[in-house]
């Protein structure tokens, strides 16, 4: 395992280095991709500029709200669907096809219902991200080993205790991967909405920079978003590792 980690680091560093060299020598024109070092410089410059704060705040707060709602509702709905076979049978085909549906088509409808502003985007992102959490919750609860449930029965745990002490901990790895996907999908929902339909926020700024051939600013914004998501995912991953170690896995 150690060896693989080493090789992976070398591969990643090498890839970034190769990109840097290709960009600096002009093998990849700056109109296509700018050098990684230039991206980092651009991020620093971006964060120092005055006008970006409001956009970042708007997008990140929308993502944070959407993500929290998606995780809570996704978990509750997933739990209910897992508990009631009729509902599960009825909704499964729709859940499976969910991510192929063009959610942005319903954005005009959301604007009529919720008005202009960030509410329709938050609703869109919540609805978009929620199903990842629903599916992960159902998958996790499906795979609780029977022997644990039998043990719970032998110990005469109450229903709440059984759920809290047995089912949820056993389903935790799946819940955490649902969490990670919910974060990614909240970002997709908010940023894609801003790309296409909004006049502010990070997504709009990326699209605006693209339209104006302002590559440094565009790559700075992209790198900024990807760094935030990756940092969050790595934090979840670290927590997951700790959880698994405690179980002796």
């Amino acid at each position: 395992m150690k060896k693989a980690t080493w090789i992976r680091t070398v591969v990643l560093v090498g890839a970034v280095g190769a990109l840097e060299i290709a960009c600096r020598t002009g093998a990849i024109p700056a109109t296509m991709i700018i050098a990684p070092s230039a991206m980092v410089v651009a991020v620093v410059k971006l964060l120092q500029s005055d006008d970006i704060g409001a956009h970042i705040e708007q997008t990140l707060s929308a993502v944070a709200i959407a993500m929290s709602l998606a995780i809570v509702f996704g978990f509750v709905i997933g739990f209910i669907l897992n508990w009631v076979p009729f509902l599960r049978r009825a909704f499964s085909p729709f859940l499976a096809a969910y991510y192929a549906i063009p959610h942005f088509a319903f954005y005009p409808l959301l604007i009529v219902i919720f008005g202009l502003g960030s509410t329709p985007l938050i609703v869109l992102a919540t609805v978009f991200a929620m199903v990842a959490m629903i599916l992960a919750t159902m998958a996790g609860l499906d795979r609780v080993p029977r022997v644990l449930l039998k043990t719970a029965r032998i110990h005469r745990l109450s229903l709440l205790d059984e759920i809290w002490r047995v089912r949820l901990p056993a389903a935790a790895p799946h819940l955490l991967s649902g969490l990670k996907l919910a974060v990614a999908y909240s970002f997709i929902g908010v940023i894609a909405g801003e790309f296409i339909l909004s006049t502010s926020g990070i997504g709009h700024e990326i699209a605006y920079s693209y339209d104006n051939f302002d590559n440094p600013r565009m790559y700075a914004l992209i790198l900024f978003v990807l760094t935030i998501v990756t940092t969050f995912n790595m934090a979840v991953y670290a927590y997951e590792r700790r959880l698994m170690r405690r179980r002796g896995a």
């Binding site: 990670k180 974060v183 997709i188 940023i191 894609a192 699209a207 693209y210 978003v225």
Partner: peptide, 16 residues
């Protein structure tokens, strides 16, 4: 890691 990135942010790069 790539799977859980919001790939929509990369679309302008693809376009370029």
């Amino acid at each position: 890691g790539l799977y859980s990135l919001p790939k929509i942010t990369l679309y302008p790069v693809i376009l370029l």
